[in-house]
Design a binder for these strands. Structure first.
Lengths: 239, 239
DNA sequence: ACGGCCGTTCCGCCTGCCGGAACGCTGTTC
DNA sequence: GAACAGCGTTCCGGCAGGCGGAACGGCCGT
């Protein structure tokens, strides 16, 4: 494994993670490099356009890495197909809607439209959460043959009520949607999007404060999700 | 400049640009590397999670780079502040709305909400366009002391009717908004968002098919933009 | 059974990365 | 205002590790 390459990405990730200009000395401490080595690589990152310095000489990431990533997601088939459905779902429910993708044992938030009166979410676009703990993730697991394996691996990393979750997956298979209270005070409903015969990878979900989702609007949300999910799967299949 | 680092980013950019799995030989040709060198670096990128191989052994970029970039934009002050205003603007106009940021002499599309009946745009989130040619860009240039310098540099790179554009900037300063027909058949209106006393960097814009923007809705769009822009600048100032 | 093409591995050369030490600058202290 | 501390930057000798030509093994299509 190329040492310099690994170090350069560690540096870039460090800058991104910080979210604010960092002093060279602090960077060195975080990634465990000598000053001169870090300086040389940071200068290279600068020449490539991925980093620059503020007036005080501190280093920060530019938007270049974001541009690069945006190119990746722009022609992602699921993301492309989902945009319209996400907007429709947001319009009919008025709540926060998300598009998630299974990535390893996690779920990756690909896109999100937040409600005008936003809820305090821990998740943001581009972040991860254990699939077994989110509504969209559970919907995906329920629709996959290896769903319980993922559940088991997640349980090995953190305390989890596996029996209850297995029951939830079973119920999700029957009802066609899954539910979650991952963030306290917030209820989410998710449906998996299966394209063709391949195992489900993506999910649509709607999230709202628990007390705003009383019986009536809850059913509206579930119906909208089931219908939107079905139409989206259909539109993906017909390609 | 670290050779291996530069090469690794060239490889990653090559994979992202392709948007499809690439064969090692093709990659080598594009970035001008020996097979073994490219292979070693690609393996490193794989270990770092930025690339992987499909079942045929061809290489492709993972979503990792996108995750990295998403972390950058998530806590970008302008992006954060704009989201709500963008949604409001989309709701009142019903058209495609964009948030752009000046980056060099270009404008960078930070965010966009597309209209239900989409227009054929050349631009996507994360892409660039010459600031002098877009509505948002012109609005920014009109609001900056170095606006005409940027115009001049752009004109040096491609044929441009500088006199007409200068007149447009002048008019934009008077009216508070700029107009553009960058993509044929599409009209865009943009307003600059100036935060504090610093030169304007960002703009909000609305785009729609030219024939849909007859006098009446055009005025609606302009009014909505001017008001939203003013409120957004105000909300940024008060931080 | 053959040959071409693919990704992968090997290994000796030598270059280009490494990092300790010294430099110049800025802001602070007494 | 002289001494100092702390910063980013630069220098340069040493040597590890990146480099790439060549060989390997597997997979097709012939």
């Amino acid at each position: 494994m190329d040492r310099a390459v690994a170090r350069s990405f560690a540096l870039l990730e460090c800058l991104v993670r910080a979210g604010e200009p960092l002093r060279l000395a602090d960077i060195c401490q975080q990634v465990d490099l000598q000053k001169s080595t870090a300086h040389r690589i940071l200068r290279t990152l600068g020449e490539l356009g991925y980093a620059d310095q503020d007036s005080a000489g501190r280093y920060q990431a530019t938007l270049r890495a974001w541009e690069l990533g945006a190119g990746l997601i722009a022609d992602h088939p699921i993301k492309r197909a989902a945009t319209g459905f996400l907007q429709g779902l947001h319009r009919t429910t008025g709540e926060t809607v998300s598009l998630t993708l299974l990535s390893g044992d996690d779920v990756l938030y690909l896109d999100k439209i937040i409600a005008p009166r936003p809820v305090r979410f821990r998740t943001r676009i581009g972040s991860r959460a254990p699939a077994a703990l989110t509504a969209g993730g559970k919907a995906i697991l329920a629709a996959r043959p290896d769903g319980e394996d993922i559940l088991a691996r997640t349980a090995a990393r953190q305390p989890l009520d596996v029996a209850a979750l297995k029951a939830e997956l079973h119920e999700a298979r029957r009802a066609g949607y899954a539910r979650s209270g991952y963030s306290p005070g917030v209820t989410s409903i998710g449906v998996a999007i299966a394209v063709g015969a391949a195992p489900a990878q993506a999910a649509l979900s709607v999230s709202a404060p628990t007390d705003r989702l009383t019986a009536k609007p809850l059913n509206t949300v579930i119906d909208a999700l089931l219908e939107t999910g079905a139409r989206m799967a259909e539109s993906l299949d017909s390609r």
